[in-house]
Design a protein around this nucleic acid. Structure first.
Length: 188
DNA sequence: CGACCGATTGACT
DNA sequence: GTCAATCGGTCGG
């Protein structure tokens, strides 16, 4: 599911505004079998959305100041989700820039959305969006048209202490918005 | 309760 | 490369 989300459009609507980014980097988090997952120790008030049936949006608050968003992918009660780590801006770039507190310089286009908390800030996603139904909106996934068969790179995940051996990070090769590169990726 | 710390970022050496 | 910011979730006593 993580791999399949690469190249898809992440769409966020708010009133008449539509913001779109192509998903270029993701990580899979696999419930109670994955020590790096918020769901590892079972359901709590915080991670409850992760345990819902696939198709919901799990948004969490971290480091006292950031939000990150996940697409819930498992059956009800399982606790699996895919973290959206980076998107390539497609539509609504000036609004994303404003949401990120940027000026109008084009130089910052990459840093607009090359990280999971940056994606949430650019798309205006925080607490109220936790638990959103991705079929109903106002956040949803659409088929991309920009990268028909993106070359996918696999690596280990970023910013975690446990589960670092598991190759569950996926990104589109050479895409400028990928958040960061690691030593031994594997191309599939 | 109190202590610890994080699926990060931005500023700085 | 290092490190502080900042605060809610989680866990031990």
């Amino acid at each position: 599911m993580a791999r399949n989300l690469l190249g898809k459009y992440l769409v966020r609507t708010r009133g008449n505004v539509r913001l779109i980014g192509m998903i270029v980097e993701v990580e899979a988090y696999r419930g109670t079998i994955d020590p790096a997952s918020h769901a590892y120790r079972g359901m709590t008030q915080r991670n409850e959305v992760m345990f819902r049936v696939g198709g919901h949006l799990y948004v969490y608050f971290t480091y006292g100041m950031h939000f990150c968003m996940n697409v819930v992918t498992g059956k009800a009660g399982v606790g699996e989700a895919v973290l959206i780590r980076a998107i390539e801006p497609i539509e609504g770039i000036s609004i994303m820039r404003k949401n990120r507190g940027f000026g109008n310089s084009l130089a910052d286009l990459v840093s607009l959305t090359n990280g999971p908390a940056k994606v949430c800030q650019a798309l205006g996603i925080s607490r109220p969006e936790n638990g959103i139904d991705l079929v109903k909106g106002p956040v949803f996934i659409a088929r991309g048209i920009r990268a028909p068969r993106p070359r996918i790179v696999v690596s280990t995940r970023i910013g975690i202490r446990e589960g670092t051996d598991r190759p569950w990070r996926y990104y589109i090769k050479d895409n400028p918005w990928v958040s960061r590169y690691k030593k031994s990726p594997h191309i599939i």
